[in-house]
Structures are given as C-alpha cells and as structure tokens.
C-alpha cells in the first residue's frame, strides 16, 4: 500500500467520522441527503460481498466492516432516530436515485471483468459510487447555504477520490501495476463531479466566507 492510497482511505474514514459527529453532536441531519447515504450503504454492501470469501489483510477487513456499519448507521439515524429524522430536508432531497441504481446495475451486467455474481456486484458498486454523490450535490445546491460540517464532509469525500487517482498514477509508474480500468474510469468521473463543488469551497475558504452554492 502506498502513501496516496492510505491518505485516500484515511480521508474517506475522516469524512464518515465528520458526518457521524455532525449528526451526533447537533442531533440534526439537515443538509445531508438520505438518498446519497442509501446509495453509499448499497455500494459498500454490494462491494464487500468478498468479506466472506477473500481475505486480503486485517486492514482491509476492518475498513470494510467500518464502512458497511457506518453507512447503515447513518441511514438508520436519518430514517428512524426520533430526533434526527425531524431535521431531514426531505422536500429538497428529490433526486430520483432509483434511476441511478437501475442504470448502474444494467451497465454492470454488460461491462464487468467476469460474468459472475461477485464481479457484477463489484462493478455495480463501482459505478454506483461514482454517481452516489449527485443527490447530495443537488440538495446542497438547492438549499444554497451549506453548514461547515456538511461542507467539510463533501470536501473530504472529494479529497478521498483525488487521493485514489494519485494512488493509481503511483501504482502505474512506480509499482508497474495498473489498477482495474473499471475503477480508474469510474473514479475519474466521480472526481470530476466534485470539480464544481471544490471551486466554490476554495472560493469561500479564500474569502473566509460561508460556503454558498449558486442555484
């Protein structure tokens, strides 16, 4: 494992902790898209089916369990928690995320490394992860003002993707090992989706102003 991969994983982990902290400390999930969180829960469950069949390392196993449990916990809080669910911006979270699920599954059935249950679900999870942030970005854009923790959460998620791209470049040139092209292309698309958000995030940071996304 190289430094970029580790930095990516840690940024991802911190993003989840920031989100959990926001929900726990403020007892509020305002600004957070339940649809994006449901997509992430689906991404991790579909991808980590190999938890029971392949052992890679203690690190991988622990991280997989953490990502599955934390994403399910967030969905549970937003749907079931007596106090937290009241702050959910349901009327702003209108992205038709079911379409993403159907399209990604369709693409995974056609484009995969091997037509087996595990590989199709793996490809599905990669495609779905690439677009899972869309409901969240739409919600932020609709609400206009973004609170600090939500802004940091999305920024860290984007940072995780950026580190993964550096990791693939490093692996290609230094380790002479190319990561799977399905991940690489999906990863590039996923990171590109953050470009607009990053632009406004840096602008607000530079001007020391509250993050505001134009409609």
């Amino acid at each position: 494992m190289n430094i970029f991969r580790l930095a990516g994983d840690m940024t991802h982990l911190i993003s989840v902790l920031v989100l959990l902290l926001k929900i726990y400390a403020t007892k509020s999930c305002s600004g957070i898209s339940l649809k994006t969180q449901e997509l992430y829960a689906m991404v991790f469950v579909a991808r980590y089916l190999d938890l029971f069949t392949d052992y890679i390392s203690f690190y991988n196993t622990v991280m997989k369990i953490v990502f599955i449990l934390s994403s399910l916990a967030i969905v549970w809080c937003m749907r079931m928690h007596r106090v937290v669910k009241r702050s959910y911006d349901k009327e702003l979270d209108t992205f038709r995320h079911n379409i993403l699920i159907v399209v990604c599954f369709g693409v995974a059935v056609i484009i995969n490394e091997k037509f087996t249950l595990r590989e199709v679900f793996w490809a599905f999870s990669i495609y779905l992860e690439a677009v899972a942030i869309l409901p969240q970005l739409v919600l932020l854009q609709r609400s206009g003002n973004v609170d600090n923790l939500t802004g940091q959460y999305v920024f860290l998620l984007g940072g995780y993707r950026a580190f993964y791209i550096l990791n693939w470049i490093y692996r290609y040139f230094v380790e002479q090992r190319f990561s799977r092209w399905i991940s690489a292309i999906s990863g590039l698309i996923q990171t590109a989706l953050y470009a607009d958000f990053f632009y406004y995030y840096f602008l607000s940071w530079k001007n020391n102003a509250k993050l505001h996304l134009p409609a």
């Binding site: 190999d50 890679i56 990561s179």
Partner: peptide, 10 residues
C-alpha cells in the same frame, strides 16, 4: 489487472 485477481482496494 487480469481476471480473477483480488480486489485489493477499498
């Protein structure tokens, strides 16, 4: 990146 290789990334 041959087929059947383990998915070692998260």
């Amino acid at each position: 990146s041959s087929q059947g290789e383990l998915h070692d990334e998260l």
